[in-house]
Structure formats: structure tokens, C-alpha cells
Design a protein around this nucleic acid. Structure first.
Lengths: 331, 331
DNA sequence: CTGTTAGCGCTTTCAC
DNA sequence: GTGAAAGCGCTAACAG
């Protein structure tokens, strides 16, 4: 930073305080002086140090965002939403990629505290006691995205995963399927994982479908999990005609697997996903899936932070609408 | 931030300087005192303010990253690489999404200067004079990714787009294709856009293929551009048997378009892409494309920043290897 | 080894 | 309206 406020003050023959007032409009300054100072600022390309300002104002206008995987489209959409909203309110994003790793989450929690970010948007993966402890050390605005934080102390932005899974399963049932498998996420993921399983089971029960847990396979949301999962399922239950996957990536893996086995989707087997990532509508066949508004979720999270910062009341559960998107992968 | 270094000093009966020394190991401190201070720090969960530290040390350990679209897989991979490398060296990322918008680029350039980031990784889109001017105001380490900056003043991380496009076209020719179309990026994109066109043309010429510019269509790297582009191409040149697309997204659009017209890829028409995004190997048919190591590019950019910061010499052009990946979409 | 002091660049009382 | 001075929390000479 070349010039400081002191330089500008001297060059325009006024005090630092006056320059500060001109810059921030915090107090009236005579037109004449204001113009003189402005001129010097322009000529010098002076930029006040936000560091110094933050130190004295005790606000950094920085929002920390901790997310498991920046390059996963699901998360990058959320980041996009957060960034957009932050930018509108002159906040900036400090991006932290936790790689699904608890140690990284903890490390970043410390770093963000040290950096004195004004708020934190946390999409955790491990909600261990340690994480909770670090979170409570954090005396700033905190909002969670996607997953609830056990302590229930922070607002969370989410969709109704259980209901969405119920509706998708219901849709498959209504299409005439009776032997419907599920490739779900990890059960110890209390949120997206468990809730979607719950919705599936409720639909099966509600419609008196006579199938057991042998129709279920578990995966970590990866392509390969879908690819292999459906093979195991089909081996155990050759009569299966449809499979509901815990996310789109596994669904696409499942489709690819089916095609590689010489069968056709949806003719031989129907496949549904969850998330509606960009690929879903483009894939051949296009994917029937649950749409969730990731970018909007990001925006909401940031808006909630903004409200918290203003001291406004914020709902503890900020729900977003999902949508069942019917495409070619199911009949 | 609850406790300050002053509090810790008082609570452990030493001076602020000593506490600072204990924290930073900047000067020897007697074992006894060190332990006493450490104990207080642990008990209070004291975190020094990086704000204050930055102000006095004149380094923020923040790296600004300006990128056109955070949620585009191509860019999010780069961010991922940057983040990883930064994290290894205790730097953090200030993420800026310019939305392909020059005004945003300029705005962010100002913000990052104001935030006094130690370095800037810039993936621009508009390399206007205004942008260059802002860049030169920036008296910090700057590295460009993907595109060269006209002034040639900053190191750039890139692949050899011209050569890659040549090789892909060559591959199609060797597969026996004579009527090869191209759906390229915008020509005014001097980098990825123009270079890939150049490579294509060179191959056509080199192998004495007798086709003209009617075999070319332009697009903005979007799915729809590929979808529509190939239809226009096929209308003009019904004998076309292969098309090389400026990126994977357009290639996938082209394939979808062909399939929707009742034809088959690669039987009726071969399609090749560029980038090798995750979708490429998963798509049905899987996509023949040019692989470029996005994450590595991000890492390199960050490494270059680190070198610059250390005052080391840095190559002005940091090339990465591309790779022709042959998959199902071409025969 | 340890403490004192003077900044880092800005904002914000408090006088005038 | 304007300026002087204190202070934000830390680091880095400089003494001792």
C-alpha cells in the first residue's frame, strides 16, 4: 500500500480525521475541502487499508465458508450463491476446503477465528464434539448449510430430505414399480444420508410394498458406489425394476453400470437420483431426480448471516422447496 | 476476539513482548516463563488477532483469487488446487467470482488491493486496458491462469492449446475423417478460443484436407451452443462425419443434439471435446477429449505466487502437459 | 532473557 | 467544520 491516510492529509493540507470523514462520509465536511481531498485521492489512486480500518472498527467484512469439497458441483453452487449475496453487501468470502476431513475442519475453525471473520457459513461433515467446541468458541454469526448441527444453536438452511425421498419413492411406485431398490448414502450421515433412507422406507410402508432391507445398498455418494451398488443389488434381487439413488452421481454410476451390462435405462431398469446437478438434464438418458436449489441455499445462508449481524431474529430452520423432476431415466 | 495479548501478559505476569515471543518463537524465552504463558493461553483459548499482526508485519497471508465462474467445474478444479497449495503454506484464499463481467473484475481488483492480499491469482476474461491498469496498481505478486495477460508482465500458467487442438484434429483425420467440423469458442478470446482454432486449421492444412470455413461454428462454451451449432453445421455440410468442439460442454450438447435427431455417436458422427471434465468419462458415450490438469494448474499458480513472495525467479510461462484421451465418442 | 516504547494505518471521541 | 490525540492488538527495535 503506497499512500496512507497521513500522506493524503498532508498533500491536501488537512488532518487525517478530515480525510477519513471524506472517505466515509461519517461527518460533514465543507464542500471545498471535500473536493480538494477527493482530487488528491484520485491522483494518487489511494486505497485505504482495510486492515487498519478493520482493526479500529472491529469488523472485517469477511465471511468464512467451510465446505467439504470446493470442486463438487453441489458445493460449488452453494459457494456461488454465498458469494453473490456477500458481494451485494460488500462482504468477501474466505474459502476453506475441508476435504471431508475433521482435522481440516478444526484447523480452519481456528484460522477463521484468528482472522476475525464477521461470520461463518459452515457445511460440516463431521459434527464431532470437538467441532462443536470450536464452534462455540466462535463468538460470531454462524449459519449451517445442509446439515443440522447437533447442539441446535445455529440456524440451518435445508430442504426436507425425508419428504423428498418419500415423494420420489412414491413416484416410482405410482409408475407401477414394486421391487424398488435404494442405493443410499452412509447411515452415519444423520442428515442427507439417514433422512433419505427414512423417506424411502416410509413410502414403501405406506404403499404396502413387500420388500426388505436386502433391497438396500450403501455408498459414499460416488460414481463407483452407484456402479457397483446396482450390481450387488441386481445379483441379490434380479426382479428389481427400479432403483432410487441417494444422489445423482451414484445414479449416473448405476445407469452406466446397467448400460455396460447390456441393458437399457429405463426399459429394463428405472433409475432416479437426488440433487439435480447440471449433468442430470444433459445425461443420456436424462435423469429423473429431486431438484434442490443449491445456489438459493447459499444465498439464504448469507442472508441469514447478514440478519444475524444486524441483530435481527433469524429462523432456526430455513427450509427450501425441493422438486421432483421427471425425466427419461424412469418409466 | 475476547482476550488480547495484553490480557495474557497481565495474567501471566510478563510483558506483551514476551507473550509475543512465546507465540511466535521469534526470540528465546526461558522455559519456565514459556510454560506459564502457554498455560494461560490454553486456559483462555487465546487466539492472537491476525488483523493486528498483519498490520504490523505488513503481510496478510491472504491470496486473492479472481475467477469467472466458481461453479463451473473447470474453474472449481483450479480453485481446489490453489486452495490445497495455499493451505499447505498457511495462506488463505479470498474468493472472487467475476461472472465473466468486467465491472466485477475491476471491483474485485480494487477490493483485493484494499484488503492488502499478499498475492493475486487472476483468471480474467476481459483483458481490457482498464483491467491492466488496475493490475499494475497492484504492487503484489500476480500470476495469471489460463490466459496470458497482454502486457506480459506476469507469469502465466497454461497448456499448449494450439498444439492440443492440432493433435485432436490430427487424431480425427487419422481415424479416416475428412469432413471435420469445429464448434469453437469466441474468436475474440485470444487464448483458448483463438489458439484452438489455430491448431485445428493447422492440422487441416498439414494433412491437405479440403474443407473451408463453412465447417466452423462459433459458441460461448455452453451446452446450447453445441446443441445448436452442430445442427447448423450439419445443415450446411451434410457430409460432415466428425466435429471437434472447443470444450466438453459444447461437445456434450452436440452429442445430445445428434441423439435427439435420431442418429448415433460415434457411428453417424464422431464428437470430440476439450477439457476432460468429470462428466466426460462418465457420459454415454464417454467423450474423446483433451485432458488438461486443472487442479495442477491451480497448484502451480499458487506455487508461483509463493516463489514470487520469496523473491525467487519464476518462469513467465509455466506450461502443463495436456493429453489426448480417446474414448467412445469417436471412431 | 525480558521489558519499554514506538509504530502499523485507520476511526473516533473530545475540544475548539 | 476541523484538528489533536488516544486507541484498536500486535511486532520489532532498543535497552538493560
Amino acid at each position: 500500500m503506497r499512500y496512507t491516510i497521513k500522506d493524503i492529509a498532508q498533500m491536501s493540507g488537512v488532518s487525517k480525521a478530515t480525510v477519513s470523514r471524506v472517505i466515509n462520509g461519517s461527518k460533514p465536511v465543507s464542500k471545498e475541502i471535500k473536493e480538494r481531498v477527493m482530487k488528491v485521492i484520485e491522483e494518487t489512486n489511494f486505497q485505504p487499508s482495510s486492515l487498519a480500518r478493520s482493526l479500529s472498527k472491529k469488523e472485517t467484512r469477511l465471511i468464512g465458508v467451510i465446505i467439504p469439497d470446493v470442486s463438487n458441483p453441489v458445493f460449488s453452487k452453494i459457494i456461488h450463491g454465498v458469494e453473490k449475496e456477500a458481494n451485494n453487501s460488500n462482504y468477501n468470502i474466505l474459502l476453506c476446503n475441508s476435504r471431508y476431513d475433521e482435522a481440516q475442519e478444526l484447523k480452519y475453525l481456528d484460522i477463521l477465528r484468528e482472522k476475525e471473520v464477521d461470520g461463518l457459513i459452515f457445511h460440516g461433515f463431521h459434527y464431532s464434539d470437538k467441532v462443536n467446541e470450536r464452534l462455540s468458541l466462535f463468538e460470531k454469526a454462524i449459519v449451517s448449510v445442509g446439515n443440522e448441527i447437533k447442539t441446535g444453536k445455529y440456524p440451518v438452511v435445508l430442504i426436507d430430505n425425508e419428504k423428498a425421498a418419500f415423494e420420489m419413492t412414491e413416484y416410482l411406485i405410482q409408475k407401477g414399480h414394486k421391487n424398488i431398490g435404494m442405493i443410499h448414502g452412509p447411515e452415519d450421515d444423520p442428515y442427507a444420508g439417514y433422512q433419505r433412507i427414512k423417506g424411502y422406507r416410509r413410502a414403501i410402508k405406506f404403499y404396502n410394498i413387500n420388500i426388505d432391507d436386502e433391497y438396500m445398498e450403501s455408498g459414499y455418494y460416488k460414481f463407483q458406489d452407484g456402479y457397483k451398488g446396482i450390481r450387488r443389488l441386481l445379483k441379490r434381487k434380479p426382479k428389481m425394476t427400479a432403483v432410487f439413488c441417494g444422489n445423482d452421481e451414484m445414479a449416473i454410476g448405476a445407469i452406466k453400470s446397467v448400460v455396460d451390462m447390456g441393458m437399457t435405462v429405463p426399459k429394463d431398469i428405472a433409475v432416479a437420483g437426488f440433487d439435480d446437478i447440471d449433468m442430470a438434464k444433459v445425461f443420456i438418458p436424462s435423469l429423473t431426480t429431486v431438484h434442490q436449489p443449491f445456489e438459493k441455499k447459499g444465498e439464504s445462508a448469507m442472508k441469514a448471516i447478514l440478519s444475524l449481524l444486524k441483530g435481527e431474529e433469524v429462523k432456526m430452520k430455513i427450509f427450501h422447496e425441493h422438486q421432483i423432476i421427471k425425466r427419461e431415466s424412469t418409466t
